[in-house]
Amino acid sequence: MKRRTQTLLVGAVPIVALAGVLSAPALSVPFAAQGPGPLFDVLSDVEGKSIIEVSGPSVDSKPSTGELDMTTVAVHHNLSLPQTIAMWLDSDNEIVPIEAVFPPGQSQEEVEEENKAAFTESEANATSAALAQLGLPTEVSVAYTVPGSNAEGKLHEGDVIISIDGIKATKPDAVKDHVQSLNPGDAVELKVRGEDAAKERTVAIELGENPHAKGAALLGIGMSTQSAGQTKVEYQLSGIGGPSAGLMLTLGVIDKLSPGDLTEGHHIAGTGTINAAGIVGEIGGIKHKISAARDSGAELFFVPAGNCVEALTADAGDMKLVRVRNVDDALAAIKNPGAAPSCS
């Protein structure tokens, strides 16, 4: 039986198993290869669907003339020894222990599930940061419930969480921070609004234990952020996980909900986590992402400030590496690329 390598597309950490490539009959070795992954222009379509779909009175119907590329890292695993050697000889790839892809004690399915949750949180934070930048109010909705959790059957996809234990929930962090302050077995009371916006209900849930963090409380839901008004933001990109798309998704939402062309015709790539306040956080695989963006012809690459030292070891070619700490830094760099601070 032939064995195939498997490829993951990652933002900051290994995420979702995709197609197998490079067949070989030998047993796999305990290593993986990391290299540049594909880029996705968040202002474009994938398989006929907009990566970011917006609707409502604030939508700018005029398409942008530039690009906002989110970058990924491709991780090949289940490699045979000859395949590992071949990838090691390719300067674009880096060979790492398999534990860097699947930490000890975690199955591939658990890693995929964990990083799916991270991407959902990244989308929620991108919406929060973008709407806050535009001065639009937000609310928290249930994206999914964790199978087998105490929330399953009590909360449903699309439910709006108004408050938790009397704490107003306008952003997922309000719910997350409160749950993290409690212990498994504690009970929380949520005020929730379902499909009928005129009806509210109270839901009591006993917190479980996070399977990935012993002693940490688990509510058992994934959360997203939406406008408290008529504006709606939805993300259509699948097969990617992890938190590092946050910054570029935020910029994409801002472009689609503000007048004019945010990109001003520039080809921009970048990476970075985002929180609800618009702060950009560091990620992994920065050198591979820079290589992919350089080869695509990007003019600017947004680098989280915490990644600048490592970014300077990559071959960026003529592409400018712009240091960003928050959304405001990125917006200022787009408006005036020449004055934008470089990694140094």
Rank of each mutant, 00 (worst) to 15 (best):
I286Q: 06
T263Y: 02
S291V: 10
V253G: 06
S296Q: 07
M248L: 15
T250Q: 11
I283L: 08
V303C: 03
L257H: 04
P304F: 12
A311M: 11
G306M: 01
T313Q: 12
L251V: 12
I274G: 10
S291A: 15
I268C: 01
S291E: 14
G297E: 06
G285W: 02
E310G: 00
I268N: 03
G272L: 13
K287H: 00
D315S: 15
V253K: 05
V253W: 06
L251D: 12
G252N: 09
G285S: 04
E264W: 05
A293N: 01
R294K: 15
G265W: 09
G297Y: 00
L300A: 06
G270T: 09
G281M: 15
A305M: 00
G278T: 14
A311S: 07
N307H: 02
H288L: 07
G260H: 10
R294N: 08
G265R: 12
A316M: 12
E264D: 12
D295W: 11
P259F: 14
L249R: 10
I290Q: 02
G252D: 02
F302W: 06
I254A: 07
S258N: 03
A269Y: 00
F302N: 10
D261S: 06
A269K: 02
V309K: 09
I274W: 13
V303E: 00
P304H: 12
G284Y: 13
A292Y: 00
K256D: 00
D255P: 05
P304I: 10
M248I: 14
I254F: 03
L251A: 14
V309S: 09
K289G: 04
R294Y: 03
A277F: 07
H266M: 09
S258V: 08
L300N: 03
N275I: 12
T271Y: 11
M248W: 14
I274V: 13
A293V: 08
V303H: 08
I279C: 10
C308S: 02
G278R: 11
K289C: 04
G260F: 11
V309L: 10
K289N: 01
C308P: 01
I274A: 14
